[in-house]
Computed example of a mutant assay.
Amino acid sequence: MDGREIIARRIAKEFKDGMVANLGFGIPNMAANYLPDGVKVILQAENGALNFGPTPKIGESDPDLGNSGGAPITLLKGASTFDMDLSFAIIRGGHVDITALGALECDQEGNIANWMIPGIFAPGMGGAMDLLVGAKCVIAALSHNDKKGNSKVLKKCALPLSAAKCVDIIITDKAVMKVTDKGLVLIEVAPGLTVDEVIKCTDADLIIATDVKEMEI
């Protein structure tokens, strides 16, 4: 199981029955394939879909149906599609219970940078700015370290922020952390890793929960 799948599976564990959940571009959209059995979640795509389901099988996709990243989706019974004006009215109106968004980096204050690296063209942050302030709970999903081994969970973000102090939970391929008033609390580590190993590869200051668990995936 690669890191992306680990993150997507763990994101899905945060969804509770009856929630309206928005899935962002990249890894978060993969979480649609791993919803817990028996949990009824209404998935929302910012480009205009409500109550979509897992990725369709090859040859069964509808070119008119796609998620926020343009990948094919299925629609469940009772689903609806609509224009982006209505989609963002749902988001800005506070009707999204939880959102999971990809990130370039996060920090221990709950800041998130997920749209721009200076010097590299970026078309804009898109719906992230609305979701980060409109959703009731924000999950940041990202690899724990970059290709050089540098931590992407930081004391302070260095890249331009998408929003400040908005993240509630950080989920990486190595750990799950909660942002609290006291700091960033390590609550889970990935299978095969120890708390000390996670601390060693993390730039942020971590508060270690008294009952750190193995990540459920």
Rank of each mutant, 00 (worst) to 15 (best):
L142H: 06
G78F: 08
A8E: 03
V176A: 11
D17A: 08
V189K: 13
V189W: 10
D37M: 09
V212K: 08
Y34T: 03
I58P: 02
E109L: 14
G192C: 08
S68M: 13
D107P: 03
K77I: 01
K182P: 01
E197M: 11
I217W: 10
C166N: 03
I6D: 00
A204V: 03
V198K: 09
I73V: 12
Q44E: 12
T99G: 01
C137Q: 13
N51H: 12
A190L: 09
V198D: 04
D173L: 10
D85A: 13
N111Y: 09
K155I: 14
L23W: 05
Q44W: 07
Q108G: 02
T180F: 10
L131C: 05
L43P: 00
V212D: 02
Q44L: 15
V20W: 12
D211C: 07
F25P: 00
T99W: 04
M215G: 01
L154Q: 04
A45S: 15
M177F: 05
L104E: 03
I208C: 08
A71S: 14
M84L: 13
Q44A: 13
A204M: 06
C137L: 11
A135R: 02
P28L: 08
A100S: 12
D168S: 10
N67L: 12
G59Q: 10
D211I: 12
G124V: 07
D205Y: 10
I6V: 15
I187F: 03
G78M: 09
L206C: 05
A190K: 11
E109N: 14
D146Y: 06
V41G: 00
S143R: 14
P160Y: 06
K16W: 10
R10A: 02
G192F: 11
E14T: 06
G48K: 10
A89V: 06
N145S: 13
I187K: 11
F88D: 01
N51F: 02
C201Y: 05
A141V: 10
K57R: 13
G38S: 10
N51D: 02
N150C: 08
R10D: 01
F25C: 09
V41E: 01
K156T: 12
F121R: 11
R92W: 08
N114D: 12
R92Q: 13
